[in-house]
Design a binder for these strands. Structure first.
Lengths: 196, 196
DNA sequence: TCCATTCTTGAATATGAATTCAAGAAAATT
DNA sequence: AATTTTCTTGAATTCATATTCAAGAATGGA
């Protein structure tokens, strides 16, 4: 059958995600991608076609792992309110200390590509819709539990929270203080209808 | 004295702003910049040094005109509440029809450059601080007028509104509906403490 | 009118990054 | 073990685009 591939495709994608995340699509040179993944150009091109193809796969990998993590956190607690609080608490920590200092790969890419690339554009819409649905679900649970008034429109509130998250993703790049981030999420909570 | 320059520096900057705004820094080719401004490469380089220099000046021109417009709108009405409402109403229109479909040049650039360029980074912080101050002023006026409770923290509320605007700037690129944009600004109003 | 200076022009060049490719190495099948 | 197939390597190439430059044109002063 011939020589077997001796690198792990998923591990390579995870490394590539970091480069695109930190530097952006244009800012990420094949040279650095090769350094970080430990691959040579030839192997990258054989496995992924070209830089654009690598990026699409890296983006999908990022989206999948983020969706998974977000949904898990929102549902980690029977209380919808606590789920949303946990989600934002984790976001803030990552923005202060973790990779979220680089913003969010989806947000960064929406801005960098506008909606010029139909393939990427579709993936964005899907990802944002997924986040929105997960938030909406948590809001509905909060309503059921009496943590929130029955006449809150869950869909609208979810869109608003998605917008807040996008805003945080931008501000994260300006190295904001914990105080600033917490003030923002506190206001978002109020906006949805949760009591302080 | 020699030949006099026969183009208007400010007009050139305004055209350049549009190219950077729509395409981003990397996406804006000198070729297109020359086409749009009507200049030749040589003239651009003589006047602005290089692409980076042109960008910095274009960004400053954008920031100045946006600050001016925003502050004017926020103060266009004696009521702080009405000023903020006008500001968001105008933003929504521009996101549906106008150049804000391309997002905001500041937001786009914050994301594209992260905080790698100190010169640009400083300009960002200043611009965001200006917006924050203007919003905070309107909120204070609303408090004075009894449109808002005295114990609203104007500084925190202003930071929150800046975040919302950044989020809108991102979502604008996904071609959102009027309903979506209005739902978001309605929630932001609530979050600050205005009655529906 | 002529000169000195500065601007304009657009083709030529330089630069940097993506991509290819030919040779070598490893695995599996016979 | 030989053979075939596929992967790996990294230097060479291609390609795109920022930048330069030499020649021409317009202005103000002498």
């Amino acid at each position: 059958m011939g020589r077997i591939r001796n690198f792990d495709r998923d591990a390579v994608l995870e490394s590539a995600v970091d480069v695109f995340w930190e530097r952006g699509y244009d800012g990420a040179g094949m040279q650095e991608i090769c350094r970080v993944t430990g691959l040579n150009p030839g192997s990258v091109y054989a496995a992924f076609g070209d830089k654009h193809g690598l990026f699409i796969e890296a983006l999908k990998s990022y989206m999948a792992s983020m969706s998974r993590e977000t949904i898990a956190r929102l549902n980690s607690n029977p209380s919808g309110r606590a789920g949303i609080a946990d989600y934002y608490a984790a976001l803030i920590e990552a923005m202060l200390d973790g990779k979220r200092r680089w913003g969010c790969l989806v947000t960064n890419s929406i801005v960098e590509f506008a909606m010029n690339d139909p393939q990427i554009s579709e993936a964005f819409q899907l990802h944002l819709a997924r986040l929105e649905t997960a938030l909406s679900g948590a809001i509905e649970r909060a309503k059921q539990a009496g943590e929130l008034s029955r006449d809150v429109d869950a869909a609208e509130a979810a869109v608003f929270l998605v917008c807040t998250t996008q805003g945080l993703n931008v501000l994260a790049k300006t190295r904001p203080s914990r105080r600033t981030l917490e003030a923002i999420t506190r206001h978002a909570f109020t906006a949805v209808g949760f009591k302080a």
